[in-house]
Design a binder for these strands. Structure first.
Lengths: 229, 229
DNA sequence: GTGCTCGTCATTGCATGCAACGTGGGATAC
DNA sequence: GTATCCCACGTTGCATGCAATGACGAGCAC
């Protein structure tokens, strides 16, 4: 049934909780409590926390505890800025190294006419969106770049998926993705980059306002330490 | 004397060994063996290995063992490509957000006239070089960006330090660093970027040939598994 | 009443023991 | 002689026990 590596299960579960705001940023979690929660010993919990700390999701203060990383708007913004730079590089290298048939498939896949057949579920659509960007990254042949972009994607996933609650935004996504692929096929790197930049920046703006509101909601709903007011 | 966190000590020691090619890429290391080596139990060893795995220095194959990551030339090249893109972004954001006095200090620090007073030790000079690039990253105010660049730096550190075995290369470094800072002060982002790109690309070329030679040397000197010939 | 100190408790960090899995070698069948 | 199967060993993965450290609160001095 459950695959053996408990540590992995715990790791993924915790990451999901953190990214899904089920664990409110700033929360202190103890190994014992998590161990009891997951029904395993402290050892796999520790390993999971170590990995999460290495990836920056939690902060371990020695002999003190483990705290869920505060994910401020500033950081999300910075993640998007870096993402723009990296995806721009991906485009550049994809233009040189990506196989033409693959690119054509991508263009077909995102033909605006197919927007009607887009996934109805927000999560499915978000995944489809990510797959486009990851395909380009992979197409660059640069594994380091791909890894970094995947990492950034998981960190903004929870925000980004909210892009696709709006039907019109989905249509625009199809149009822009298609156009980016087409521009690459035509060899017009400069315009492709520009469009990609704008494409991501839109998402960035959306994320900014949305995060503000979401954080405010959460803060109102679950006041962790309202003592000092 | 020895600070308590054994896991940290082990982590750093292992990272140094890996980066310094004391642990040859592809080598299989067992927890028991490392535990005996460091004189600690397997627990802190495991933690260190987990972190190293999360950062991509080793690969853990479940129930099988821990292998030192193969660091091919291709990956180093890709790290440099990403680094160029990120440092370019750093310049852009540093231009907007970095305090002028800081930039001026940087320019003064790297004035070509001071090249004579450069550190004689290769390592000291490498550190000084890194501090320049990190200062710019920090100056961007983008912590995500800074973190990524620091990460990339540690991964190419062992190669990069060999840049400074040559006295003339040091002089060129001073000149270019100074010019980059000056260009930022003058607000000429485009030229600064170009120069930074060329500056790093030189290092990249150097690394490429050097890695090839170094790996060949090591392979000749320490044949790990010559059994199958 | 306020500040300091000390003791208790909770929690982490490390060591060790045990079970499960993968691997390699030897024996056997053909 | 070769291929296959099985067993034993090595290694990892997890559970548990113990020591040490930092935090919190009570009590005391002023």
């Amino acid at each position: 049934m459950s695959s053996r590596p408990s540590a992995h299960v715990v790791y993924n579960a915790l990451k999901d909780r953190i990214l899904g705001f089920a664990l409110y940023p700033g929360t202190r979690v103890t190994e014992t409590e998590l161990a009891a929660d997951f029904g395993v010993s402290r050892t796999p919990i520790r390993e999971a926390l170590q990995r999460l700390a290495a990836e920056g999701f939690v902060t371990i203060r020695p002999k003190q505890g483990c705290f869920v990383r505060e994910l401020d708007i500033e950081e999300i913004d910075q993640l998007y800025q870096v993402r723009i730079a990296l995806e721009s590089l991906a485009l550049e290298q994809a233009l040189e190294r990506m196989a033409r048939p693959e690119l054509e498939a991508l263009a077909r896949d995102w033909h605006p006419a197919r927007a009607d057949a887009a996934p109805t579920s927000v999560d499915a659509m978000a995944q489809r969106d990510e797959s486009f960007h990851i395909a380009l990254a992979r197409g660059s042949g640069n594994r380091v770049l791909t890894g970094l972009l995947e990492d950034i994607n998981t960190r903004i996933h929870i925000i980004r998926r909210l892009d696709f609650t709006d039907r019109e935004r989905i249509a625009v996504t199809y149009a822009e993705h298609h156009r980016i692929a087409a521009l690459l096929l035509a060899g017009d790197l400069a315009t492709a980059r520009e469009l990609m930049g704008a494409h991501i920046r839109y998402s960035q703006d959306f994320a900014r306002t949305l995060t503000l509101r979401r954080l405010a909601d959460l803060r109102r709903a679950a006041p962790t330490s309202p003592a000092d007011d």
